[in-house]
């Protein structure tokens, strides 16, 4: 398995993955993706459905082979050295699948303990510990088909942690969960991150990425748009701060629209939003608003979601 690794946990270079459905044109799921995840980092992969998130996770998890390009996990190539990657990774794939519904949680986990080659005694103890940690001990001997989605997802997490892997791949772990269950799961992921595990997490939930991740990679249609900290991402558009106000008269709207540096003035229900596209315009906008007697004025910065929509939307609509 080689010695301790002291580089990035995940390195992806020029990764391409195409699929050839029967009698239909080829689908390019990933078109030259490069990315790097540091050890101990919680890295988010953010994108809409069909962006290529799951394909990337499955390649990193040694389930799919890349069409071209390379990817390594702790220095081992996921295609050529799959067998030495597998003991290092734990995976949770989204959705309801992946469990034997008619078996109990404990029976499911014991099976995975065996597949990860744990000694029977060690396997039993590990299963008990994981059930306890995931808060499933009381229901451990009930059939999985009686579980809520949140419980199933925690069971998936327990399975992924069976062999105490240093790297975790979580594919949309909170999709379909009710808000409370999602929050519980995020808390557990936060704990896992605290154990210096590397976590690579896909999501299309901006708030989740902001809450959990040190860095976020935006992906759309198999291409990476940006990799930044959640803060830096929102700062990318911070120079596009905008002003919102209530009760603007037609005159002041016309006045602001003519102002150099103001990109748009739009009605937002009862309020008005003034967007700017260069530095230093905001104070001038505020001054004019106040002078016109408008006192309910707010300066806002875009949320990560808006950055994301902006980046995706800009390339999206005109294809």
């Amino acid at each position: 398995m080689g010695g301790p690794w002291s580089g990035p946990a995940v390195v992806v270079e020029d990764l391409v993955r195409t699929f050839q459905p029967k009698k239909r044109p080829e689908v390019v799921a990933l078109q030259g993706v490069s990315l790097r995840v540091d050890e101990g980092e919680v890295h988010g992969l953010l994108g809409p459905n069909g962006a290529g998130k799951t394909t990337l996770v499955k390649i990193l998890a040694t389930i799919l082979l890349p069409t071209s390009g390379s990817a390594t996990v702790l220095g081992r190539d996921v295609a050529a050295e799959a067998t030495s990657v597998r003991p290092l990774i734990g995976i949770v794939l989204g959705g309801d699948r992946g469990l034997y519904n008619r078996l109990t949680a404990r029976q499911n986990l014991r099976y995975w303990a065996a597949l990860h080659k744990l000694e029977p005694g060690a396997g039993r103890r590990r299963v008990d510990a994981l059930l306890e940690r995931m808060g499933l001990t009381k229901r451990a001997d009930d059939r999985v088909q009686t579980y809520s989605r949140g419980m199933r997802q925690r069971l998936h997490l327990a399975r992924a942690l069976m062999h105490d892997p240093p790297v975790l791949f979580l594919d949309e772990p909170t999709t379909g969960l009710d808000p409370l269950a999602a929050r519980e799961l995020r808390a557990i992921v936060g704990e896992l991150a605290g154990e210096r595990r590397t976590i690579f997490l896909t999501t299309h939930d901006m708030a989740e990425a902001e809450a959990l991740c040190q860095r976020v990679t935006l992906i759309d249609r198999g291409r990476i748009l940006a990799t930044e900290t959640p803060r830096a991402l929102s700062e990318m558009l911070s120079r596009y701060e905008r002003v919102e106000c209530d009760g603007a008269t037609d005159e002041v709207v016309a006045d602001l629209s003519a102002l150099r540096g103001v990109s748009s003035v739009s009605a937002l229900g009862l309020s008005t939003r003034i967007e700017v596209d260069s530095d230093g315009v905001v104070p001038e906008v505020m001054r004019r608003l106040v002078a016109a007697g408008v006192t309910s004025v707010r300066v806002t910065r875009p949320t990560l979601e808006e950055v994301y929509l902006d980046l995706v939307g800009r390339r999206g609509m005109d294809v």
Binding site: K58, T62, I63, R97, N101, W112, L115, K117
Partner: peptide, 18 residues
């Protein structure tokens, strides 16, 4: 069908053994 195969593949155990 239930998405377990892909998880088994990603373990150190050979599929034939299973």
């Amino acid at each position: 069908g239930v998405g377990i195969l892909e998880l088994v593949v990603a373990t150190p155990t050979r599929f034939q053994t299973v």
